[in-house]
């Protein structure tokens, strides 16, 4: 009996590693064609689903001619454009060169836009949510009377339980117009997506931070008060340092959720493959790019989506490892 139990629990623990490695390998093999095609340049390439002419020796010569005769076409091509327009220009280009000779075109995929969109929307969410979550946690753990703390605590937990699609709809119809009214710019943008993400991770962070603040031993707080500390000093010097581990843990969980959040962001980020020039420009994130494009994707396009998935996997892994590393170092 004892042995069976030990083996079962060992098997369960092993399963975690099998899953982790298995998912990584699946993603890698599906992304392999795109990785072979685009290499690491995928990460820094802002173009997505763009047809380009494969340059041959003769082609290069033609292009030089075309540069002399028709400046506009070339400069247009260099500009960052919305995917559809790019296609048209590529087509024009193709036609322009077509009467000279038979050139080969291919579609290229680059991940820069969704990678930037994911990282920036998560950063905005964190910057927005962290101070508010800390404020809520301090209020619940140290300032509010017990009955009020309990009621607000329940409200926080309910907020955490709202499905993300509801946040998306609410964000699009009610929150985004207000934000756009204040900041200007588009209603669907990096900013509105990031802020709604922030609202979504807020209750997590507040609840976990409150719980870890509540583990500060009463006698430790009393010791500080007994030295003449004020409530603010006790919170700043004793409770925060003591619950640091829990606070970092809450940030890790919140980051994990924000990086992978799809539904709410899909409503709000604008879903276009364009690098944002300002915080209130529309763009796209990795999960949204995958959710929006899997239906039609095939071949290299599908593989490129898996490449994006692999990158998201690595980003999440890296963020969590970094946070863990930081926390381990600090805890020592």
């Amino acid at each position: 009996m004892e042995k069976i139990f030990q083996k079962l629990s060992l098997a369960s623990a092993t399963l975690v590693f099998v899953l982790l490695v298995g998912i990584f390998l699946t993603l890698y093999s599906a992304a392999k064609p795109a990785i072979d095609e685009f290499g690491l340049g995928f990460i820094t390439n802002p173009e997505w689903n763009k047809e380009v002419v494969v340059p041959t020796a003769q082609d290069t010569a033609n292009r030089a001619e075309a540069l002399n005769s028709d400046d506009d076409a070339i400069t247009d091509e260099d500009d960052v454009m919305i995917a559809d327009e790019d296609d048209e220009i590529a087509d024009e280009d193709e036609m322009l060169l077509d009467d000279e000779d038979e050139s080969v075109t291919k579609t290229i995929y680059g991940g820069l836009v969704p990678i930037v969109g994911t990282l920036l929307s998560t950063l905005i969410a964190l910057v927005f949510a962290l101070p508010i979550a800390m404020g809520i946690a301090v209020f619940l753990a140290e300032i509010a009377p017990k009955n009020i703390s309990n009621i607000v605590g329940i409200a926080i937990e309910l907020l955490a339980a709202i499905p993300s699609i509801i946040f998306g709809m609410w964000g699009l119809y009610y929150f985004a117009p207000i934000v756009a009214g204040i900041v200007g710019g588009y209603q669907v943008s990096l900013l509105t997506a990031g802020l709604v993400l922030g609202v979504m991770i807020l209750p997590f962070m507040a609840a976990i931070t409150r719980d870890s603040m509540n583990t500060t031993p009463a006698v430790l707080k009393e010791s500080a008060y007994a030295l003449g500390a004020t409530k603010f000093e006790v919170i700043k010097d004793i409770i925060f340092p003591y619950s640091k581990v829990g606070i970092i843990g809450s940030i890790i969980l919140a980051l994990g959720r924000a990086l992978g959040e799809t539904m709410a962001v899909a409503f709000l980020i604008g879903s276009i493959f364009v690098l944002p020039k300002a915080i209130n420009d529309p763009t796209i994130s990795i999960p949204v790019a995958m959710a929006n494009n899997f239906g039609e994707a095939s071949g290299l396009g599908e593989s490129a989506l898996f490449y994006l998935a692999l990158i998201l996997f690595i980003i999440s892994f890296a963020v969590i490892s970094l946070a863990k590393f930081y926390f381990l170092k600090k805890a020592k």
Binding site: P217, V219, L220, E222, S223, A226, D237, I238, P241
Partner: peptide, 13 residues
């Protein structure tokens, strides 16, 4: 009026 407690209470610093 200072106070010393039952268990040592070093601060996390």
């Amino acid at each position: 009026v200072g106070m010393i407690f039952q268990k040592p209470t070093p601060f996390p610093m």
